[in-house]
Design a binder for these strands. Sequence first.
DNA 1: CATATCGTTCAACTCGTACTGAACATATTA
DNA 2: TAATATGTTCAGTACGAGTTGAACGATATG
Lengths: 175, 175
Amino acid sequence: MKKQQSDIKRDMINLAGMGFSRFSLSPIAGQIYALLYMSDGPVTLNDMVRELGISKGSASMNIRALETWGAVRKLWVNSDRKDYYEANPDIMTIALKRFKEGMVKRLDELAPALEKAGDSDLKGGAAAKDAEFYRGRLAEIKKLMGGIRKAIEIIPESASDKKFRIISKIISVLK
Amino acid sequence: MKKQQSDIKRDMINLAGMGFSRFSLSPIAGQIYALLYMSDGPVTLNDMVRELGISKGSASMNIRALETWGAVRKLWVNSDRKDYYEANPDIMTIALKRFKEGMVKRLDELAPALEKAGDSDLKGGAAAKDAEFYRGRLAEIKKLMGGIRKAIEIIPESASDKKFRIISKIISVLK
DNA sequence: CATATCGTTCAACTCGTACTGAACATATTA
DNA sequence: TAATATGTTCAGTACGAGTTGAACGATATG
């Protein structure tokens, strides 16, 4: 009997929190985003604290993370001192951008270590047989990394990107 | 001066450990896989313990995880009681399969909660205006989930899959 | 049968990440 | 100027995931 319209909102907030944590992201960021996404108007930091039962510090840090991802926007309402936020409803673009950036960042972090492994090859202090095997494996890995990097670069950064539409079309055909 | 052939191997092991942890996977699993990948013959559990300086428990648990991923194979050497392992060198197939399975699993976990959110909509205890807004947002999310699910299904499960070659070709053209 | 070897299991511990709560700086209001 | 309101920062803490180490069962070996 207590169940009312706020059920959907609350369900979505729980879903987002769950979903975010499933993807190794802060569940609170997910809850905040869902709260804004399910609110038909600007939301303040204190609204988040009250409605989600989280600390002000957490709200502040997570909302700024969402802001840097382009998932939420800050609004100017009247000339209120409060910060008002609204959700960027284009989830697909947000997700694509974040996925792509995350992959590129991780690959870039690994690249130097891979180069270094390649360098130590030159000394060839090992038995010639082993050295050859190592070189082969190393070459395989480098080729693989190159391929992955190219594939990542193809990922469109937005759902309105021309690439996105082409790929969507291809997918619907392949299916 | 201490640096020798084993440098490449050790560098690769460190790289894999780093790489795995960057992708929220057990770094030890990465190290073990790299050890096998850089070994031109069967490797035992104790080899892993000795060469990587890890506990037997960890070696046992991680090698079985790698086995279930299809990243590693168990061998029968003579009729030795020891378990011998070798790496499946087809990293692309392993990664594709795991990525795809991981995505499907996570989506499946979220689906019931999404359905539940949809159900509570029926009550419509809220102001009609709000209810309409909620319904719209909910519909967007469901559409999004459907699209993502389809995209995931397109991912080939192996590098020798026909789909993989088609998509590779497409990528090289799009670039 | 005693001893050694091998792999598994699981409770305790470690470590990193994320959240909290209070102190703080800044800006508004009376 | 005092009192209130707002958002940030950061040290402390809680929590979860991964690792360890010891105990164990099972299987060989002497």
